[in-house]
Design a protein around this nucleic acid. Structure first.
Length: 961
RNA sequence: GGGCGAUUAGCUCAGCUGGCUAGAGCGCGUCGUUCACACCGACGAGGUCACUGGUUCGAGUCCAGUAUCGCCCACCA
């Protein structure tokens, strides 16, 4: 027994069994290195970087989606003969991974702080080693034809070096800086996050109206600047203790502010009013006394304040609100931070120190009420910032962080798209991309985490900062910044760091800039825009020429898939049950680019059925090929092309071709052209749908059925001619199926490869397929697309055979019509019926096709009359009219004249409607003047057909009356 | 507050550069054990393409507006 015997069952199973095929084929492809491109300086490469999944991630439909689309693109380009690189990898995913490991530690009763940084990192690497391979194994299950020999991880030494190089360069160019600013703080994660990591949610809250006592003035005038602090004690309106209920006793003047976050009162350093606001004009420059704290805070004028909102007076908390921060800057207000890193209040919060922010809110509101300072509470919906990964309410917090100055980078990224050096598909996302980059804020890149690239900055004891280059040694006697970089900083370098940047490696030289970036639109800003910014700046060119964005996968009702809804469809389960190809085909063909896709399980089942259909078509074709029956010269030949084997069909003469042969070849050629066009336009879904439509509704439903007739013994001809015709039928079956499998391979790689291997088994040079040589591979993976791009040569005729398509359409319509009539008259399926056809000039053609009418419409051959015109028409017969062709079916004993008249009248009505429609169109001078010729011609042809049909129907009705 | 998308058969969706007599799958109805496939085949029913107006010889397709649903962005306390 040879290896090939065990590699694959000798006979094709009755139904396609995905489980039996997928793993074996994938391992085979990978082992033979089919996914590893050869660098050929004479060929333009195609490169695509895989969006690196989180190393600890679990496979979900989003992964299945991107793998499907990228694999379609990549396999197609590989088949086009381009040296194709799809570079895979994983992302260390700072926050996500750290959270996972912390959870694990908690289950062991520990915290990361307890075990310390070093031990924590050791544990995290351990975790990565254990679970990191899981996601890549699952990507393989999806059939991802990426080059695993080039797999990368964002924390690999090489990529870390790239991070260092990028940081150094940006720092030296003053595009990275450090400073104390208000940032988005995630109390659960205890780190700063970027603006993008904050999600906004509408929440029901309150607008609390709180009055602050105004400082009493003995002489009824505002205190002057010179008097300043010195008069504060004596002039205070506050007499009681906070909480006594008498805190504000004696106050006579108030200013009322409205707030949604009362606890921030504790950090107020001013009250602001609009300078134009008459109500408050007199108060500007005076002081209020801050409840609970007793701090004396000025009333300032700032045009930011909207007089029509709330009371028109705004409390100002520069350390805890971005707008207040800006006001604070303008008025040089002190910034008082009242919060700890865990969002409990600090000593600045006076009586509330130590309380959680929301607890403090509750308590403070109660106390304000007790002190008679709470004027009213009004329910208020507002947008609240939520930490994307932590899930809790974000707290704006003042802290020292590292930032990237984004404006100069954004300009480069904008220009690349505006100048068309990079295109975004679908195009509408270009606008979104522009808007974001045009309004970009600086990017906070430091994270108070441990898992990630540590910020490559060292501080000397005397406070000096040292930023060494990537290859410089660590500065001695200095301590490294404890923070790490935002995960997206390293993934922003992904398209070039994975190829060796900053070194000028052969891979970088050959594959960079990459060709296409394919990803979900949800990370357009997070990732794509940042790759554009960093790529343009650091490498001098945009990292890819095309950005293709796909939509999100949702459930059948269009809801987001989430564990809490319980509506998650697990791709692994789907692949187990229906096969990878079924899942892939569904994802690729259910929607349109950039549009969210509602995954319908019924569609997956339909795709599974399609895989089985392909399988069985192949089984049929192989069974009819028999020992092939062609001479060696007539067989499809192998020919070396792009260093790999390919099939080139050696066309024998089409002189013997039947109408059906010509029709299916024409349709096939048309399909090839369409699919090629659609793929180039990134319209993969439509391409896939068209292949399916062709294979099922045309090839299987019609040609395969007709091939059965054509392959039957002498009835298709006699002697030499019959044998030749049969050979040609086999050739056509083979050619169309073989080519269709190629077309479909990017979408359904497993079933097509397995079927193709069976189909072409006899031509394989090496019998031992399992150990086939990579230098002479026999696989659809490398099989050139070119045979399809250059349509099957139709014996020096045009690739498309319009006459054949037209004639075959009539045959199809007649067969369909006869089947319909049989059905309506409840003719037993097995019964042979007689038929008389009056077909005018098409009689000769139809006569040639009579075998098809016999077989497919079950018309008795000896009772089938086809004539140009008839002397007399049978009275007791059902009538069928297709254009000027009349079919009479004398169904003895079944004909109900009344029903027949009704049926024909209805058809006549329809025909007359069509005539009227078309006549009015053709009668319209505007139409005849302006419409293109072929449209007018089609209108005229249609009119003629309808008129002929109407005439025949009228005659018949008259006869039956 | 700005921007985008969707609205087509009972359901889930196609319909690309206007020419459509609007398609597919599922579901539904009738029939079928013809040797590739019941994960199948044949036939059929089912739609005023959300609404209003416009451009055009011609609109599901382009434009404007309306409605409903969804998404993104945005500092109104």
């Amino acid at each position: 027994m040879t290896a090939s015997d065990t590699f694959r069952p000798a006979e094709m199973a009755k139904a396609y069994e995905a489980q039996q095929v997928e793993q074996r084929l994938y391992e085979w492809w990978e082992r033979l290195g089919f996914f590893t491109p050869k660098i050929d300086p004479n060929r333009k490469p195609f490169a695509l970087s895989m969006p690196p999944p989180n190393v600890t991630g679990e496979l979900h439909m989003g992964h299945a989606m991107f793998v499907t689309i990228e694999d379609v693109i990549v396999r197609w380009h590989r088949m086009l003969g381009e040296p194709t690189l799809w570079l895979p990898g994983t992302d260390h995913a700072g926050i996500a991974t750290q959270t996972q490991v912390e959870k694990l530690l908690r289950s062991e009763g520990m915290s990361r702080q307890e075990i310390g940084r070093e031990e924590f990192l050791r544990r995290t690497w351990e975790w990565k080693a254990k679970y990191g391979g899981e996601i890549t194994r699952q990507l393989r299950r999806l059939g991802a034809s990426c080059d695993w020999s080039r797999e990368r991880f964002t924390l690999d030494p090489g990529l870390s070096r790239a991070v260092r190089a990028a940081f150094k360069r940006l720092y030296d160019d003053a595009l990275i800086y450090r400073g104390t600013y208000l940032v988005n703080w995630s109390p659960n994660l205890q780190t700063a996050v970027s603006d993008l990591e904050v999600e906004h949610e509408e929440r029901q809250g309150n607008l609390w109206y709180v009055r602050y006592p105004l400082e009493a003035t003995t002489d009824d005038r505002p205190p002057t600047a010179e008097e300043g602090e010195s008069v504060v004690g004596g002039r205070s309106s506050v007499v009681g203790e906070w909480g006594s209920g008498k805190w504000a006793e004696g106050a006579t003047e108030w200013i009322t502010v409205a707030t949604t976050r009362p606890e921030t009162i504790l950090g107020d350093t001013a009250v602001a009013v609009n300078p134009e606001d008459e109500r408050y004009r007199d108060l500007i420059g005076r002081y209020a006394v801050l409840p609970a704290i007793g701090r004396r805070i000025p009333i300032v004028a700032d045009s930011y304040v909207d007089a029509s909102f709330g009371t028109g007076a705004v409390k100002v908390t520069p350390a805890h609100d971005p707008n207040d921060y800006a006001i604070g800057q303008r008025h040089q207000l002190p910034m008082i931070n009242i919060m700890n890193r865990d969002a409990t209040l600090n000593d600045e919060a006076g009586p509330y120190a130590g309380q959680d922010r929301f607890e403090a809110r509750k308590n403070l509101v109660a106390d304000l009420e007790k002190e008679g300072l709470l004027v009213k509470t009004v329910p208020h919906t507002m947008s609240v910032g939520i930490s994307q990964r932590g899930g809790e309410v974000i707290e704006p917090l003042l802290s020292e962080q590292w930032f990237v100055r984004t404006k100069p980078l954004a300009e480069l990224a904008l220009a690349a798209v505006k100048e068309g050096r990079t295109k975004i598909i679908p195009e509408r996302f270009e606008k979104v991309y522009y808007y974001w980059l045009e309004n970009i804020e600086d990017w906070c890149i430091s994270r108070q985490l441990w898992w990630g690239h540590r910020i490559p900055v060292w501080y000397t004891p005397d406070g000096q900062m040292i930023v060494p280059g990537p290859d410089d040694p660590e500065p001695e006697g200095a301590t490294q910044d404890p923070d790490v970089l935002d995960t997206w900083f390293s993934s922003g370098l992904w398209p070039f760091s994975t190829l060796g940047w900053p070194d000028e490696t052969p891979d970088l030289a050959y594959f960079y800039p990459t060709s296409v970036m394919e990803t979900g639109y949800d990370i357009l800003f997070f990732w794509v825009a940042r790759m554009m910014m960093l790529g343009c700046y650091l490498t001098g060119e945009p990292p890819f020429h095309t950005i293709y964005l796909h939509g999100l996968v949702r459930d059948k009702q269009g809801r987001k898939m989430s564990k809490s809804y319980g509506n998650v469809v697990n791709p692994l389960e789907v692949m187990d049950q229906q096969g990878t190809d079924a899942l892939r085909f569904t994802l690729a063909t259910s929607g349109t680019p950039g549009q969210d896709l509602n995954l319908n399980p019924e569609r997956i089942e339909a795709a599974r059925n399609f895989a089985n259909k392909i399988w069985n078509i192949t089984r049929f074709v192989i069974s009819k090929l028999g020992d092939w029956g062609l001479t060696k010269d007539q067989r499809p030949k192998t020919k070396d092309q792009h260093g790999s084997a390919s099939l080139v069909f050696g066309p024998s003469s089409l002189v013997d071709a039947t109408l059906a042969d010509r029709w299916i070849l024409s349709r096939y050629n048309s399909l090839v052209g369409e699919v090629d066009r659609l793929m180039r336009a990134y319209n993969f879904g439509e391409a896939g749908r068209q292949i399916q439509e062709f294979l099922w509704s045309e090839f299987a439903d019609w040609y395969v059925e007709i091939a059965k007739t054509q392959l039957e013994g002498p009835s298709t001809g006699s002697g030499q001619a019959g044998a030749q015709r049969q050979q040609l039928t086999r050739e056509v079956l083979y050619t169309v199926l073989e080519g269709s499998l190629r077309l479909l391979h990017p979408f359904m790689p497993f079933v097509t490869e397995e079927a193709w291997q069976y189909l072409t088994k006899d031509q394989r040079k090496t019998k031992d397929e399992a150990n086939i040589e990579a230098s002479d591979p026999w696989s659809l993976v490398l099989g050139p697309w070119s045979i399809m791009v250059a349509p099957y040569p139709m014996a020096n005729e045009a690739a498309l055979d319009e006459a054949a398509e037209r004639d075959f359409a009539l045959v199809r319509e007649l067969i369909g019509g006869i089947r319909n009539v049989r059905n309506e008259y409840k003719v037993e399926p097995a019964r042979w019926v007689a038929a008389t056809i009056a077909s005018g000039p098409r009689a000769a053609m139809l006569n040639e096709q009579r075998a098809l009418l016999v077989r497919l419409a079950r018309v008795a051959d000896d009772r089938l009359v086809i004539a140009e015109r008839l002397g007399s028409k049978p009275a007791q017969a059902a009538t069928l009219v297709v254009g000027d062709v009349e079919v009479f079916l004398p169904l003895a004993g079944l004909i109900d004249l009344e029903a027949e008249r009704a049926r024909l009248s209805k058809e006549l009505e329809q025909a007359e409607g069509e005539i009227a429609r078309r006549e009015s169109k053709l009668g319209n001078p505007g139409f005849v003047d302006k419409a293109p010729a072929h449209v007018i011609q089609r209108e005229r042809d249609g009119l003629a057909v309808a008129q002929a049909a109407a005439d025949r129907l009228r005659e018949r009705l008259a006869q039956l009356a």
